[in-house]
Amino acid sequence: MSYADSSAVDGPFEIEAVALAQIMDELDYFQILKLAPVATPAEIKLAYYRESRIYHPDRFYRLADGELRDSISRIYKRINEAYVCLRDDIRRTKYLADIGGPMRQSKLRFVEASEQEMKKEKELEVGVTPQGRKFYLAGLQDFAGQRFAAAERNFKMALTYEPGNANYKTKRDEATKLIK
């Protein structure tokens, strides 16, 4: 069978692919994978397989139209990018917050900035000073061991090093409440 008989590319498909490549930068990852934001991990995988069957570059390996092949390649790279983000719970949560916020337009692609923010947030949570981190982590251990008074003391000590740390405050208040 020669390539011309193949059903990989017909008129409607070509129109759809070209249009998708053009508006791709306006779409979020859920739209790329044709998914609802509440999709389960199984649904995400299913959608990834479904879109792979449509846009996998191997199907268009012999396509003479270079421009169309480039469009399809760009689409498929975006499908992979979407899948990498959405299959990971932590990234997905961050991404949902990103695209639900006022900066949606600049956050459609989960990139560098988002990852650096994640790293920063994580740091903020645990602390930015060595002593603050040390007392905070000791506090967490006490908390887990239900030694709430000791936990409260450690969180308070942590706060003397980082008075502005919101997470420390929350934890201290939780510990205070639980002291009998």
């Binding site: 069978m1 193949s6 990989a8 792979s52 996998h56 191997d58 012999r62």
Partner: peptide, 13 residues
């Protein structure tokens, strides 16, 4: 063969 024929018989991800 799959690349030569581009028929989409299987997909390697």
């Amino acid at each position: 063969r799959s690349l030569l024929e581009s028929k989409g018989e299987h997909f390697l991800l």
